[in-house]
Computed example of a mutant assay.
Amino acid sequence: MTISATIRAEDPDRGKNYTPIPLRWIGPLRICGNAVEGEVRVPLATYESPLWPAVGRGARVSRHTEAGIRATVVDERMTRSVLVEGEDAARCLEAASALQNRLGELQSVTRSTSRYAELLAVRHEICGPLLFLRFEFATGDASGHNMVTLAADAVLSHILSTISGIRYGSISANYCSDKKATAINGILGRGKNVTAEILIPRAVVVRQLRTTAAQVAHLNTHKNLIGTLLAGGIRSANAHYANMLLAFYLATGQDAANIVEGSQGVTYAADRDGDLYFSCTLPNVIVGTTGNGKNLEGTDDVLRNLGCRDGRPVGGNARRLAALAAGTVLCGELSLLAAQTNPGELMKAHTSIERTKGEHRAP
């Protein structure tokens, strides 16, 4: 069952709404883990109408398993990098070394900028006379873009005033790395690092997905792993994480540009005596339940329906949202890979859903 809604973009010239972005509620998907528990419908805002039944099939599969999808929030930290300059690499190393034992001091500076920002770590990279500092913060229930920039600005000012021999370079240094697919984000994570996994009985694989565990595992190795390697993918091996993430981000009021790093991730599939173990690991799920855009009427309603307005400890609502995002990605990834094990199935689905006599159907 799906429930439809519409997101509209505002025309700045005429001051009224005119461009619809179709939204549907899919599921429910059965999900458990350290941030969410139960059966939850999820919203997807997209023009790619086949995405709804694809995620819906994955959600249906989750309800035919004993535990459903297990989503584990492994880590969370939002990053901002800054650039300082010295006369040479030796001076940059001296400055970096001076910072090693000053985390507590920098944490105090961070707390002066926000009730929720907490400095977790400082990493550095030296390139000639350039010192790149990567600050990692906890940001509560906010995705934290502005929060970490404000904190980084204060920390940078403090560093420049207390460590000699270095000077200001930039408040943003691309070592974060914001809205870019980079190795450092894939390795260290940016936002929520979440793994969603499911164990699907053989009978369900055959009946619901019309394939076998061996076929899915074989395709995942050849397509997602080897294909992405040959293409030069960066810390990533998946079929289409970006499709589900963008639709989920738009529906829940997130910064849609974060699908750039969010689309990084690894799909794992294994044949376990005919049962299918399937997982999606996403190191860069950047979501929040408070902050810019989250109190708009439509967004607020969506977050309430998802149970992300409840009175949890700080950060709990954002972790729930991240777990639901990862579970949604798994549903769509599973369905697509299953379809691609059968010749013609993918194109037949797109043709029947999106086109009638050569023209796009209305959603």
Rank of each mutant, 00 (worst) to 15 (best):
A89M: 07
N101E: 14
R91L: 02
R77W: 11
V61C: 00
Q100R: 15
T46Y: 11
R91I: 08
R102F: 05
R77C: 06
V82S: 08
L44W: 04
G86C: 08
E66A: 11
A54K: 13
S97M: 10
D88R: 04
V82E: 04
L44H: 04
A67T: 12
V74G: 00
L51H: 10
G68A: 06
E87M: 03
R60L: 14
R63K: 10
R70T: 15
R63W: 04
T72I: 11
G86Q: 07
E87P: 03
R63S: 13
Y47C: 08
E94A: 13
L83T: 02
A90F: 06
G104T: 13
E85F: 01
R77L: 03
R60K: 15
L99H: 05
A95C: 08
P43V: 12
T79I: 04
E48M: 15
A89I: 09
C92P: 01
S97C: 02
V61N: 04
T46E: 13
S49V: 10
C92D: 02
S62Q: 06
R57G: 01
R80K: 15
P43R: 09
P50S: 10
G56P: 07
E94P: 00
S97K: 11
R63E: 12
W52D: 04
L83A: 06
A98N: 12
L83P: 08
R102N: 01
Q100L: 15
G68S: 04
E66P: 01
Q100N: 13
A54F: 07
A90T: 12
Y47P: 09
M78V: 14
A96R: 12
A59Q: 05
R77D: 09
S97A: 12
A96H: 03
R70S: 06
D75G: 06
A71L: 04
L83D: 05
S49Y: 12
V73C: 08
G58H: 08
L83Q: 09
A54Q: 13
V73A: 04
V82C: 11
A45H: 03
A90Q: 13
R80W: 14
R60C: 10
A98E: 15
V61M: 02
G58C: 08
E87L: 06
G68F: 07
G68T: 05
T72R: 07
D88P: 03
V55M: 09
T65S: 02
L99C: 07
V61Y: 04
G68Y: 05
R63P: 00
E85D: 00
A59I: 05
V61D: 01
L93W: 12
W52F: 05
E94Y: 01
R102H: 06
D88C: 10
Q100D: 14
P43A: 13
R77Y: 02
P43D: 12
V82M: 11
E76Q: 11
A71T: 10
E94N: 03
L93C: 02
L99Y: 07
E85Y: 04
A54C: 11
A59T: 07
P50H: 09
G58I: 08
A95H: 00
